[in-house]
Design a protein around this nucleic acid. Structure first.
Length: 861
DNA sequence: TGCTCACGCGCG
DNA sequence: AAAGCGCGCGTGAGCA
């Protein structure tokens, strides 16, 4: 390591760590009231006192020896009048839905009714905590049913009930362990049924059914983990002797085929800014759930000699390359992105066992914001893991090494514990295959990220300069317009044409235009593309044009310069591909999102993505091309499979243009519609495809579709009867799916991955299609990635996944041969449920904008 | 200054 | 142009 390299790293603008999108909790400096003081004070000086109250100190009611202890937020009007808990409208809904003979006790976090039945504030209900806790301890329930957000916060300090409903958590009250089970508040359920499209009552009932079923079956005793690292079996390998003992431990683990969780701490979130990457690797910890080891690596206090550090890395490698040990991480792609760079990509890593507790958590619950280790540990072990050791997660490199290692060790320890608990639940739920399916992804995605994309920085600079000038001109023109002058006169302010609120004022208030009027959204007025286009006004189209220019420059160019935030120290773009962010199982991409680059109107901007000039393995000069392979009509094909629809299968087998067919039928049944498209059947076809066939499959109502197409009521009726007669299988499948969802509370992809309530009808119809289609694509991506390793052929590693498209860097001199292999692999899915032919369209180009079709291929010849 | 929110818009 | 679902990210604005 030379000093100059080090300086290179420091002088380069490093990508700013992205905020953890899943982290909950914010670190604002709000001053917390002294709740323990309030608990001592109790009723003394309670702000809720009112002489109108009938029962100012409501007592719990119901069984004295309950199994279920229902804990709500506060008494309402009815409860206060009659002195009995949970007897108002909400209470009745809950009592009815909680269909059980088990003894129940009813109480609230707050004993006094707040005015207008509002939810009690924490400073109010904390005063009642002592009496509530005492009652719970005395009545010894098996579970506390935490009803609504207040009770949730009361029990575990969490505030987002939609993240916690239906999840058991162990808590300790006055030394006694018990389970809590949070559910939605029935008053929310009642209110939501008036406006929400999602059926929250279905969720509410399903959660309660699951509760009763779980109590019937029985389960483990609640157990809250003791706090902190003290009393744990944690070893710190900080010298040669320690390393030797760790090596022995790893050998024993290998021999016994143990599950070992590991966790690395790093100075940044991505490894590409460190030369070598191990410079950013601070420490590693590993644990089998009982014995835990922590090892410093590049920490400034580690005191390693270069040889020692090499030895430390070598010992860690024996863990990573062990075939016996199942190596588990929480968010494995993060660890692998670092470790495969540090150790070099080893083929054998594919063949060893890995586990990922985050994948487990996702398979069990795909809700947003419930995947962090912290959340999982609160759910499973009743502890706030990250609070155990006060650590500033953004400043790991600066923290004292002892603290860092302790923190690291606890992460590994709890990852190990988590693995076993979640594994059991996955088996119980019958989701082991889904878990295994997802575990094929981490190495594939990491390798896509590592290869990265090569950019044409000169093109970036050129495009930015050009757009910059255009933007300045467009702004000037808008501000000089009569409308903008009028805006300034009326409001006294210069118009900011990029501000939706100001543009709204301009068109709604100043110009009194009605085109933006909406009844749907909250503001009641929209200034989006649709509205502004309808204005038919130069200033409106100028604003749209400006928006477009700013979008292109801001989103797809500004951070792609040599020194831009998105470009790493190696000069490449390393977009991330996540497989646990979406609700349907698709991949998503960020830093940047490579899945939404302009392709229709402003495809030219794609020219900034270009090809490598050298071979990734040999480093020798080797011109490449970009090869893009798109699955054709993949979702249509999946609908055919899922619905087992004879007509769809026939159209696919015969390569029959179903949209053209329906365009012809519409043209015949509604000549006036045909005339509107200038009797151009191709134009009508594209219309029918996008405004009739697909909307119908994805749940648009016939009325709406008829409206868009301008069909008369009777014509529409006849056509839709005919349509659904033809696609009878799809119709039946949609009905089946909906019924099943209402019964089970979830829908399943063809791979078995679930998406759970609450869902709207259209989400229910769409999810299995979108998810299964993605599974076919990612499956091909996986198999090609494995071949890339096995055959040492980097061209087989996709660099992009855009839902139905896989994109590769292929050496020019072997372009045909390698493309043929890629296509062949994509047309041979490993799922036996793929019972229709697939097709792949191949495009080739020297940059991402200049892609030319070189052929379309079918799995049935 | 840093945070969250709504809006708008790019893609499949 | 118009339907549905799925994403990530830039901007402006309000809040502390």
């Amino acid at each position: 390591m030379t000093l100059s390299l080090f300086e290179t790293r420091l002088s380069r603008a490093k990508p700013k760590p992205m905020a953890d999108r899943r982290s909950c909790g914010n670190n604002n400096n709000k001053i917390e009231p002294d709740y323990s003081r309030l608990r001592e004070l109790g009723c003394k000086g309670c702000p809720l006192y009112s002489e109108h109250l009938q029962h100012p100190k409501m007592k719990p009611t119901g069984s004295k020896r309950p199994v279920i202890y229902v804990l709500g937020e506060a008494p309402g009007e009815t409860e206060d009048e009659r002195g009995e808990q949970f007897i108002g409208r909400s209470g009745q809904l809950l009592r009815k839905a909680l269909d059980t003979d088990m003894p129940i006790r009813w109480n609230n976090c707050c004993r006094r009714r707040p005015p207008n039945n509002r939810a009690p504030a924490r400073v109010e209900w904390e005063r009642c905590r002592r009496s509530v806790e005492q009652d719970i301890v005395e009545s010894k329930p098996a579970v506390v049913l935490a009803v609504g957000a207040v009770a949730l916060q009361w029990a575990i300090g969490e505030t987002t009930i939609t993240k916690w409903r239906g999840k058991w958590a162990p808590i300790v009250i006055e030394g006694r362990s018990l389970w809590i089970y949070p559910i939605l508040h029935p008053s929310f359920v009642l209110r939501a049924s008036n406006y929400a499209e999602e059926d929250w009552e279905l969720v509410f009932r399903a959660d309660l059914r699951a509760l009763v079923a779980q109590i019937d079956v029985g389960g483990p005793d609640p157990q809250v983990e003791p706090p902190g690292a003290a009393g744990r079996d944690i070893c710190y390998a900080r010298d040669a002797g320690g390393l030797a003992r760790l090596a022995q431990q790893i050998a024993r683990w290998d021999e016994h085929k143990t599950v070992v969780a590991f966790d690395i701490e790093t100075a940044g979130l991505r490894p590409y800014g460190y030369l070598p990457a191990s410079m950013g690797w601070l420490s590693i910890a590993m644990s089998d759930g009982d014995h835990t080891w922590a090892v410093p690596i590049s920490h400034r206090e580690s005191m390693w000699s270069p040889d020692d550090q090499k030895e430390a890395r070598a010992v860690v490698e024996t863990l990573l390359r062990s075939k016996g040990i199942v190596k588990v991480a929480h968010n494995l792609p993060f660890e692998l992105e670092w470790l495969t760079l540090i150790y070099g990509h080893k083929r054998r890593w594919r063949r060893t066992g890995w586990g990922d507790t985050m994948v487990q958590a996702y398979v069990l619950d795909e809700r947003k914001g419930v995947l962090s280790l912290d959340h999982c540990c609160l759910h499973r072990f009743g502890i706030h893991l990250k609070q155990q050791i006060g650590m500033d997660r953004g400043k790991l490199a600066e923290s004292p090494i002892g603290k860092l290692l302790e923190y690291n060790a606890l992460d590994a320890l709890y990852t190990a514990k988590l693995y076993h608990v979640q594994r059991e639940e996955i088996e119980w739920e019958g989701l082991s295959d889904v878990y295994r399916l997802h575990m094929r992804r981490p190495l594939t995605l990491v390798k896509a990220q590592q290869r990265g994309l090569v950019l044409d920085f000169d093109a970036v600079d050129r495009f930015r300069a050009k757009l910059g000038k255009k933007i300045a001109r467009a702004r000037k023109a808008i501000l000089a317009s009569d409308e903008a002058v009028l805006y300034r006169e009326k409001t006294g302010k210069e118009l900011s044409p990029t501000s939706p609120p100001q543009v709204t004022v301009l068109f709604r208030n100043v110009l009194r235009r009605s085109e933006g009027a909406r009844d749907k959204n909250k503001s009641g007025y929209s200034v989006d593309d649709e509205s502004l286009s309808a204005m038919d006004l130069p200033v409106a189209s100028d604003i749209l044009a400006l928006r477009k220019l700013l979008k292109i420059k801001g989103t797809y160019l500004d951070e792609f310069t040599r020194t831009g935030k998105l470009i790493h120290a190696d000069g490449r773009l390393h977009a991330k591909f996540n497989d646990l962010f979406t609700a349907t199982g698709r991949l998503s991409s960020d830093s940047p999102n490579m899945q939404n680059f302009p392709k229709r109107e402003d495809a030219w901007v794609r020219a900034i993505v270009t090809t490598p000039k050298t071979h990734p393995l040999t480093g020798q000069s080797c011109p490449h091309v970009i090869v893009s392979a798109d699955y054709g009509q993949i979702e249509y094909r999946v609908i055919g499979i899922a619905a087992d629809d004879a007509y769809i299968k026939k159209t696919l087998k015969e390569r029959y243009d179903v949209h053209l067919d329906w365009a012809e039928r519409v043209a015949k049944a509604a000549p006036h519609v045909y005339r509107r498209y200038g009797k151009d059947i191709k134009k009508l076809r594209s219309e029918i495809k996008n405004a009739m066939v697909f909307p119908a499959f994805y749940g648009a109502s016939p009325d709406k579709i008829a409206g868009y197409l301008g069909l008369g009521k009777r014509t529409a009726h006849g056509l839709f009867d005919e349509f659904w007669e033809e696609f009878a299988g799809v119709r039946k499948w949609q009905q089946r799916l909906w019924k099943q969802y209402q019964k089970d509370g979830y829908v399943e992809c063809l791979t078995g991955r679930r998406r759970r309530a609450p869902l709207t009808r259209n989400m229910v119809l769409n999810s299995p299609i979108q998810g299964s289609a993605s599974d076919i694509v990612v499956d091909a991506m996986n198999r090609l990635s494995v071949r890339a390793d096995k055959e040492k052929e980097p061209a087989f590693q996709a660099v992009l996944n855009v839902h139905d498209d896989l994109t590769f860097y292929v050496p020019v001199d072997r372009q045909e041969e390698l493309t043929a292999e890629i296509v062949h692999e994509m047309l041979a899915p490993s799922f036996d449920w793929v019972t229709v032919p697939l097709s792949v369209e191949v495009l080739v180009g020297e940059n991402w904008a200049a892609m030319k079709n070189v052929g379309t291929y079918y799995s049935d010849g």
